[in-house]
Write a protein that binds this DNA or RNA. Structure first.
Lengths: 222, 222
DNA sequence: TTCTTTTTTTATGATTTTATCATATTATAT
DNA sequence: ATATAATATGATAAAATCATAAAAAAAGAA
């Protein structure tokens, strides 16, 4: 889970954007001005800085400089057509910029792209004593590979992408086997859950990672 | 529970899509034309508008404008490759669009994303000391799961979708057991109300959440 | 090819949920 | 106060769901 510091003075944008980014799996903190932002940068560890350069308090360049000092990637949010700021921003070492109004999904893909580019994309997820590295495609316990098959891995990823929420059998079938009807035997999923549990659960008889929600499906809420 | 107004003139799409969306926990109402849609928008409260811009009656832009006036987010359903409409639609203030044919699940994730973005995502509902998280599919008290069965949960959702208004026994039977006549024993509902109360009410003998409206049905108006 | 691994299907037993019945209780009207 | 209708409750049979084992089919590797 990557953490973001969002510096923005428009309370509405803060609310909606940070909500959206959280929904996308990021850890988001807000600062409504440069002073506060710089303070937060010093106190905590962030993976990326999103800063609105049309801030009323200063123009956002100070936070940017501070972030750069700490080796943090920066994305600028600009008012549309603010060419001057864009140029200056990129000169300042901003890694990308996006002009308002933008589509949140577009922003997310830019964030991911920047994180990936500077090797900050955190793709390692811990589930109890099991580690899933989605970048490398490896699942391990105590450093030793658990050797999941392609389908087992895919099943784990789908559950992981929806961590905390119940995935119905039909959704899982659809996501993993690309079927809308029932072209694969419904029990196939059951069998795969068993196989996956046998590999990743400490005690497959009493699964702690993958929980069954009877009548609906399965979930990971650890 | 988020409510959706679906504006679409193809009866087949209306049926299948609204059925699917209901299954995803949304409250769905349909309008088969712009005039009716605008009327409905004025009468009731919705959280989001889904509109097919290839409507035979007008092109859907009028409803969109009306929705925007009311601060309602809009998603366009477009015929594939209808780029002109897409551009115009986004200019009109549509929050997203999806082109047919689309996978229903894709639509759902877009809807959720838009709702989240504009802070309208209603997924956590509090009823006295009970919390219902419709996104996660969890009902809990003091952080501990109440483990509702699939049907108990569905019954709770239907009542919740119609919070404040009395649901007649026949309507509940229709919504939950998909029956119009009396294929299920009428008492089945009574029994399930009891079971649900036993799990969610602090004192099942004196229910505070699910109220009985004698002669009609049940309601939640807490 | 032959052997191994992965994927899918089938079969079976245990468990939980669901539907129904019988009966008790409560509310309303006469 | 009593009769009647509506709802609540408890018990039980039927059905659906899930876990598991094991075999068959398909896909890959040696």
């Amino acid at each position: 889970m990557n953490s973001i510091l969002l510096v923005e003075d428009d309370i509405n944008i803060i609310k909606s954007l940070s909500e959206f980014l959280k929904g996308e799996g990021f850890l988001v903190e807000n600062a409504d001005g440069q002073t506060k932002a710089i303070e937060m940068l010093r106190q905590r560890q962030f993976d990326i800085l999103l800063v609105d350069i049309s801030l009323t308090e200063g123009n956002g360049f100070a936070v940017c400089a501070c972030a750069k000092e700490m080796g943090l990637p920066v994305i600028f949010l600009t008012a549309s057509g603010d060419e001057y700021s864009v140029v200056t921003g990129l000169d300042m070492g901003a890694d990308d910029y996006i002009s308002k109004p933008f589509r949140p999904r577009e922003l997310v893909s830019r964030i991911k792209s920047v994180l990936r580019r500077c090797g900050k994309m955190r793709s390692v997820i811990k589930l109890a004593d099991v580690t899933v590295d989605t970048e490398k495609g490896i699942v391990e316990r105590n450093g030793s590979d658990l050797f999941l098959s392609a389908l087992e891995y895919r099943l784990l990823l789908v559950l992981l992408n929806n961590r905390g929420i119940v995935m119905s059998r039909s959704k899982l079938l659809e996501d993993i086997w690309d079927v809308t009807g029932d072209f694969v035997n419904d029990n196939t999923l059951t069998v795969y859950i068993k196989r996956l549990r046998e590999k990743i659960e400490a005690d497959p008889q009493d699964p702690q990672i993958i929980k069954t929600v009877r009548g609906i499906g399965y979930k990971i809420d650890i």
